[in-house]
Write a protein that binds this DNA or RNA. Sequence first.
RNA 1: UGUCCGAUAGUAUAAGGGUAGUACAAGUGAUUUUGGUUCAUUUAGUCUUGGUUCGAAUCCAGGUCGGACAACCA
Length: 550
Amino acid sequence: MSEEKSLNFIEEIIENDLKSGKYETLVTRFPPEPNGYLHIGHAKAICLNFGLTQKYGGYTNLRFDDTNPVTEKTEYVNSQQEDIKWLGFEWKNELYASDYFGQLHKFAVTLIEKGLAYVDHSTAEEIALQKGTPTESGVDNVYRNRSVEENLDLFNRMKNGEFEDGACTLRAKIDMASPNMLMRDPIIYRIKHTPHHRTGNEWCIYPMYDFAHGQSDSIEGITHSICTLEYVSHRELYDWFIEKLEIFPSKQYEFARLNLTYTVMSKRKLLQLVNEKHVAGWDDPRMPTISGLRRRGYTPESIREFCERIGIAKRENLIELSLLEFCIREDLNKKANRVMAVLDPIKLVITNYPEGKDEILVGENNPEAEDKGGMREIPFSRELWIEREDFMEEPAKKWFRLAPGAMVRLKFAYIVQCDSFEKDANGEIKTIYCTYIPESKSGSDTSGINVKGTIHWVSAAHAKTATVRQYDRLFTVESPDAEEGDFKDYLNPKSMEVIENVYIEPHLAKANLSDGYQFIRKGYFCLDKDSTADHLVFNRVVSLKDSWKG
RNA sequence: UGUCCGAUAGUAUAAGGGUAGUACAAGUGAUUUUGGUUCAUUUAGUCUUGGUUCGAAUCCAGGUCGGACAACCA
């Protein structure tokens, strides 16, 4: 069966290149800068680059783009590696742009020797001024026409640490009148007397992104160098260096980055949320970081599926958060064991059930799993906790749950009928009194009674307690970036609701950190790493879809 | 008064000169011991104006709108 699946524009390019024999083996790379944690937007790029070589053969390198020692840290290198592995991908080579500092330095010397680079003593302000604007061309400066020998000598002295930071730069000599600002003699080396996370104090000059990225691709024989749209105008420069240096012609292709509703995606803004403690850290479950999503309870499969579904194109896009939620529900629906937990309890007493009697009921763990996920035991007794919202003193129309005189099925157990209820001094419902129908036991129901509603419960005498953290969108508006004023003005004050003393069925005491659970009728939850043996903390991954419109 | 990129249902993404399709979202109904799942079904789209053509979302030209570009960041 040939299921014609349409190709995205990058796959088309690759298939053409492979078919024409331009390349035998596809080589891609994922090139993060180790200056922050990876987020769902990076996941899109990871799935793309690794996915392509899985599909067409070939391999993908992991290359850290570590050309700026001021912002880069080993902590980030480690977290980024962990996230990529967790997503389920394996890189062929672990590489660093800093591995190429020696080679890159030689490339710079080559350019100088060809008369295509010069040392400039202008200040940053002067350079900006001489550069012109997008609509006005720039002007040449006095250092532009130095001799090759002088440039060689000066560049050598830069390398040897004879100048302070900012005293001079090495610039490519291209065209100060180019309509592309990046071609107006871009800086390719700058002085930074800053130790590097890998090369230590070996260098005090560091290449700029444009002078490192393309050449690194070329050195590694990257055939398709895939990046986001903001690099479109860099492509001309990318090609220029490769051409002048006469090295392997890697080609750059750009796709539109991911934007997600109700969140921000720039590393700068995410860092700000962390530093200013609007969230608990890079892995706060509300963060769109991969570590945050992992802690929230998202699975690698769900994120990969999401990346598959959003597609790859060149137009700007804003993906609805509901698609991400759909992907995790779809995955957890198959995998998550069903359990019962009561988040906002009221007492239910079964007046005709013997006091002191216990019963062990069995329930299937997951009706959606092939073997139903096996069975588990659930203790039942005379007094139960049920959800406050499952009782209505004056029922709305089409109300299927508990109300005076109404009958409901207790999940995995019996049908009960509400006889009366009691309020406390504040007028809040305190206790509901029911009678149960002994013949209606789940699995052996001979009562012949049909009820519309089924509710969850936990036996009061057997319940354990836990803390539940219910998460919601981090921002109140779809596009915090696009809004007026500071994006932080739109933080959702209710993005985390902590509920203490949630009653959970005893089975959940054995909950596993890596498993997702469905709290029946409430949503998908997972154990948080803050849990201890006697204090469990659950994160809500996502609520269940709720088509009840009360 | 620049250069480059883009424009298809609410949101994404296909259709590569020949019936505008899919997914999510939204609505309706059926099934259901989760108001979940599943199934069925409805709503809803080619930025604009010309041109080429028997025929244009697709090719061409002009316009409009959106985005990117003036860091010793990546």
